[in-house]
Amino acid sequence: MTQSVESLFESAIERYKAGEEPKALIPVFKDICDRTPKSSASWTCLAWLYLLENQPNNALKAAKTAVKLNPQDPQARVNLASAMLESGQSGVRQHIEIVQQIMTLDAEIRQEIIDNIQDGLTRKPDWQSLIRIQKWLLGN
Rank of each mutant, 00 (worst) to 15 (best):
E6S: 13
S7I: 08
F9H: 08
E10Q: 10
A12P: 00
A12G: 02
I13D: 07
E14R: 02
A18F: 03
E20V: 10
P22W: 14
P22G: 07
A24Q: 11
L25C: 14
L25K: 07
P27T: 01
P27N: 00
V28N: 02
F29G: 09
K30C: 10
D34P: 02
R35N: 13
R35F: 08
T36W: 06
P37L: 12
S39I: 00
S40Y: 02
A41L: 05
S42E: 08
W43N: 11
W43T: 15
T44Q: 07
C45P: 06
L46E: 04
A47D: 12
W48R: 14
L49Q: 07
L49M: 12
L49E: 11
Y50L: 04
L52A: 04
L52I: 01
E53L: 08
P56L: 13
N57C: 01
N57A: 03
A59S: 06
A59F: 02
A59D: 03
L60F: 11
K61W: 05
A63S: 06
K64P: 00
K64T: 00
K64Q: 04
T65C: 08
A66N: 09
V67K: 05
V67P: 00
V67R: 01
K68W: 10
K68E: 14
L69A: 04
D73C: 12
P74E: 02
P74A: 04
P74I: 08
Q75W: 14
V78C: 06
L80Q: 06
L80H: 11
A81E: 00
A81T: 01
A81Y: 00
A81I: 04
S82H: 05
S82C: 12
A83Y: 08
M84P: 10
L85D: 08
E86K: 11
E86G: 12
G88D: 05
Q89W: 00
S90N: 11
V92H: 01
R93F: 10
R93Y: 06
H95V: 14
H95S: 05
I96S: 04
E97H: 03
E97R: 07
I98Q: 00
V99L: 01
Q100D: 11
I102C: 12
M103V: 09
T104E: 15
D106H: 10
E108V: 15
R110T: 14
Q111L: 09
E112L: 03
I113S: 10
D115R: 09
I117H: 09
G120N: 08
T122E: 08
R123A: 11
K124H: 13
D126M: 05
D126K: 06
D126G: 09
D126S: 14
W127L: 00
Q128T: 13
S129A: 09
I131M: 03
R132Q: 13
R132D: 12
I133P: 08
Q134T: 10
Q134A: 12
W136H: 10
L137V: 07
L137N: 06
L137H: 09
L137E: 05
L138D: 06
G139K: 03
N140R: 10
